[in-house]
């Protein structure tokens, strides 16, 4: 057990240089962006003097190194700076928008796994059967339709034509009151507050965007599950298990599926990271106040602090994600814990 703890700690330690690198790169990159924020914020009618004034107010006239030291010092105090476009502290913006994105992405992935993994397993146990073909069609369709198109299609059918979905305007209809901020996840916060009505309201808003994203992420998960299961089912140990008379159920889940899990978990991690970055289209279509659209808006107006904050938050998230995946590996596969010792 202590060996496992050491390996966890050493994994965390390995993440520190990555985080430092991200801090430096995020700083340099945002400075390297074209466009001068001082000119932008001084307005269309500004002259040289007022631009210089704005530049001084933003601290952009100082040497690079000095700016960086100030930036790191602020970071250490948890101050990510002031967003120029929203006028609020970046930390505050992130605290409200990151959970929105996470809630959407996680529910989409949960939904996606709930469909894709059983589908992949079924397809692998009956290769060439109708289930296998259905899996292939569904997966190809899901991945080949762009998310903004499926999103709009779903809105058209379920909101406009059938009228069973709420208007696609953010996380909660205006008739509900936001639940108290505990985790930032409306579903969890509402459940914690015991507010069933708000919970249902938030869930209704979440369903369509989550389905849109889930359709898109199903393909890699289903395919990987199918391939990994096919591999595991043809392994020698499955033959041993069958020759020992074990039931299909034990062979399939106890033996084959657990061995097929490793590549599936790897894929899941990859899908999660690209979805979190790439769900900006879905956020736009459903007016979801997520972190993707926030970053794009900040980038367009050269909002340094906001972009840096976004990059940092994502980097931390990915470091955390990799850690979770590594830990999941050691739980699934005893050989990995052994190698880390």
């Amino acid at each position: 057990m202590s060996a496992r703890l050491t390996s966890v700690l050493s994994r965390i330690a390995q993440a520190i240089p990555v985080v430092i690198g991200v801090v430096v790169i995020s700083f340099v990159l945002t400075r390297a962006l074209p466009g001068d924020p001082a000119v932008y914020f001084a307005g269309a009618a500004a002259d040289e003097a007022s631009i210089a004034e704005v530049r001084e107010a933003l601290g952009l006239d100082k040497p690079m190194l000095r700016q960086f030291i100030i930036y790191v010092g602020d970071l250490a105090r948890g101050d990510l700076g002031q967003s120029i476009s929203s006028g609020r502290p970046v930390a505050e913006d992130l605290a409200s928008r990151l959970p929105a994105s996470l809630e959407l992405t996680l529910s989409a992935l949960l939904l996606s796994c709930a469909v894709a993994v059983p589908l992949g397993v079924l397809a692998a146990t009956r290769p060439g059967s109708p289930v296998d073909h259905l899996c292939r069609v569904l997966v190809t369709a899901g991945v080949s339709l762009p998310t903004f198109f499926t999103g709009i299609l779903l809105i058209y059918v379920f909101y406009y034509l059938l009228g069973i979905a709420p208007s696609p305007l953010g996380r909660l209809d205006f008739i509900y009151i936001e639940p108290d901020h505990v985790t930032g996840f409306y579903l969890i916060d509402a459940a914690l507050a015991g507010d069933a009505e708000t919970f249902l309201g938030a869930l209704k808003q979440l369903v369509l965007p989550a389905i849109t994203l889930a359709l898109f992420t199903m393909a890699p998960i289903a395919r990987m599950t199918r391939a990994a299961m096919l591999g595991a089912l043809s392994a020698d140990f499955v033959r041993t298990a069958r020759a020992a008379g074990l039931t299909n159920r034990t062979v399939l889940y106890g033996y084959a599926f657990r061995n097929a899990l490793l590549p599936v978990v790897t894929t899941l991690g990859m899908v999660f990271s690209f979805t979190l970055g790439a769900n900006v289209l879905v956020e736009k279509v459903f007016a979801w106040p997520g972190i993707g659209s926030y970053a794009v808006e900040a980038l367009v107006v050269s909002d340094y602090a906001a972009v840096q904050g976004f990059v940092l938050a994502m980097a931390f998230l990915f470091v955390l994600l990799n850690l979770v995946i590594d830990l999941a590996y050691t739980l699934i596969d005893p050989r990995i814990g052994f190698a880390a010792k």
Partner: peptide, 14 residues
């Protein structure tokens, strides 16, 4: 039955 390649014939993670 017993098989050849005994290491592969056992479930590696059980």
């Amino acid at each position: 039955m017993i098989f050849q390649n005994p290491r592969a014939a056992l479930n590696p993670i059980r």
